[in-house]
Write a protein that binds this DNA or RNA. Structure first.
Length: 541
RNA sequence: GCACCCGUAGCUCAGCUGGAUAGAGCGUUGGCUUGCGGAGCCAAAGGCCACAUGUUCGAAUCAUGUCGGGUGUACCA
């Protein structure tokens, strides 16, 4: 429709404009545009006059049920029922059909526990991957983990103290207690590092050797515990309703390549400073960051440079997305700039998507101190709250968590309220699951089969019009990588349905078959949309 | 200090590629109620869209500044 209108404008007024068609308040029609207002100035004419001229031309096409001019010069278009019904079959434009994208879907470090921020980033990244797929992109979900470094030294030191030379002590820890054990060990190691001088020395030795231990026993303990960590991470990702990564990258494997790259570009991109190799980001309005330490070891930034190349080698993507907390925004600007200069073939590939912080409505928040807000704690709270309401279903827990995170625009902080998330009233994941199940029940109860209506009554019309918006929303959400647009739409859709449902009987009505058709489209649309959000849609709850 | 992000109803958030009375949910108040799952529907109260100036026919939306909150700023990840 937008191109049609701009064609008409070109013909009548001899100007080219990018016409934007929007979905107005239903009282005005199905579509609206304010081009007439925009044209008023350049054409030096009254906007209402322009609008009337355009409206007449649009009416003459005979394609629309009604075209009217309102307010200062809005053109409102009402589609014919047949056009409205035809729109139900529309699919999102596959604009990314030839695009291959890599996306880091989760990246917690082994030997440490998982906190609420990991859950948020994981759910967001997983959903972004789904959205890219909706537009036809091929996606590769990968993960990236710090398997070397100080945190490993701290944890391993405490673990070694605990087992005291006897691996059997590790075997004695039941599977379901391993995560808690590891978490405890990290805290203990971190404390010893701070308070105990001899422990600190031992931890530093272990840290240096985390690429490969001289002692076979230490290596064995490291391997066992690392495997535990990854088992736990994998299991947690599944619990969050996210899809697994197809390739796991480790900092230890990205390190060599990254350090090499940095060293190759000393003098051109990087420079030496106090024995370290730094990227002088100030020249580009960024900040200067150390890539290789004065000890010659690769730092996080160098490893990211290595990782970029590994991803490129494995998948040669057009885009590579990294979802992180906002506090890493400036850091990634530096790394991306450094990559662009040292690896020109990677220009414009890596995109950092900064997210907000998850805080709790109770005031407690994600923190670095002992006040850990880990994922286990979160799941416990969700289960508690769910059991207070009756039965606990994993599908509902996933819906509560994912929807609460996804309904807010990416970038702003999430104030998470367990009870609100689980609520079956209002704008929540469980509510939408319920709305879906209720529609399925109607379909199951009827003995008739759906039949596409030839025309629509007022309530049906409003619902069908809203349903026709689905593919537009998917497109917008995918284009802008904003899942909350889909959340908002699905909730509005369910509200529209409830209004329809309030006044339109389905089973037993003369229009039963026609309405079944619409209800089915509604249920399918909800299922489709919730699936993109990674939310399960059981037929019954 | 400098840079970036944020500031919309009591609370949690949409709306931000400028346009029609600033919208939802929760909470509050009132109504619908033998119902295809009422976990809903209808209605009311509640907003100088942090503040100021500017650009514009038109600003919650753009620009500049002020105030308030957050984050980053060299060998952690």
């Amino acid at each position: 429709m937008d191109t049609k209108i701009s064609d008409i404008i070109a013909r009548l007024f001899d100007v080219t404009v990018d016409v934007k068609v929007t979905r107005p308040d239903p009282q005005f029609g199905d579509y609206a545009t304010n081009v007439a207002l925009q044209l008023a100035k350049p054409l030096g004419k009254n906007p209402r006059e322009i609008a009337e001229t355009l409206a007449t031309a649009l009416r003459e096409t005979g394609e629309y049920a009604a075209v009217s001019v309102a307010g200062p010069g809005f053109i409102n278009v009402t589609l014919a029922d047949t056009a409205l019904l035809a729109a139900l079959a529309a699919r999102p434009v596959q604009a990314r059909l030839n695009e291959s994208a890599v996306i880091e879907v989760y990246n917690p470090n082994p030997f440490k526990d998982l906190h609420i921020g990991h859950a948020y980033n994981c759910i967001t990244a997983d959903t972004l991957a789904n959205l890219l797929e909706q537009r036809g992109a091929t996606t590769h979900r990968v993960s990236y983990h710090g398997d070397v470094g100080l945190h490993v030294g701290k944890s391993l030191w405490a673990i070694l103290q605990f087992i005291d030379g006897d691996v059997a002590k590790l075997d004695a820890i039941p599977e379901n207690e391993r995560a808690a054990f590891m978490s405890r060990m990290y805290v203990e190691g971190a404390r010893a590092y701070k308070d105990d001088e001899t422990a600190k020395e031992a931890i530093e030795r272990l840290t240096k050797q985390s690429y490969g231990f001289e002692d076979a026993f230490e290596q064995q303990v490291y391997d066992v515990c690392k495997a535990w960590s990854f088992d736990y991470i994998t299991a947690t990702v599944a619990r969050l309703g996210s899809k697994p990564a197809e390739r796991r990258y480790l900092e230890s494997e990205a390190d060599t390549l990254g350090v090499e790259t940095v060293k190759q570009h000393v003098g051109s991109v990087f420079e030496e400073s106090d024995g370290a190799i730094v990227f002088p980001g100030e020249q580009y309005g960024l900040f200067t960051n150390v890539f290789v330490s004065s000890r010659g070891t690769g730092l996080y930034a160098a490893r990211d440079l290595g990782l970029m190349q590994l991803k490129q080698r494995d998948f040669s993507p057009q885009k590579s997305y990294i979802v992180t907390g906002d506090e890493q925004r400036a850091y990634f600007n530096v790394v991306i700039k450094a990559a662009e200069l040292s690896l020109p073939e990677l220009k414009d590939v890596t995109v950092n998507i900064p997210t907000g912080t998850v805080k709790l409505s109770t005031g407690k928040m994600s923190s670095r101190t002992g006040d850990v807000l880990n994922i286990e704690w979160l799941f416990e709270r969700l289960h508690e709250a769910a059991s207070e309401r009756g039965d606990v279903q994993e599908a509902v827990i996933i819906a509560a968590l994912r929807y609460a995170f996804l309904k807010v625009r990416i970038g702003s902080d999430i104030i998470f309220d367990v009870n609100e998330a689980l609520s079956i009233e209002g704008n929540s994941g469980p509510y939408l699951q319920y709305a879906h199940a209720r529609a399925r029940t109607i379909l199951a109860k009827s003995k008739q089969t759906g039949m596409q209506p030839a025309d629509l009554d007022a309530a049906e019309r409003t619902l069908v019009s809203k349903l026709g918006e689905y593919h537009e929303v998917i497109q917008a959400a995918s284009e802008q990588l904003l899942p909350h647009l889909l959340c908002t739409y699905l909730y509005e859709l369910s509200q529209t349905f409830n209004r329809f449902y309030e006044q339109s009987r389905v089973i037993g009505d003369a229009r039963e078959a026609q309405r079944l058709f619409i209800v089915e489209r509604y249920a399918d649309t909800l299922r489709d949309g919730l699936t993109v959000l990674g939310i399960p849609t059981p037929d019954q709850l």
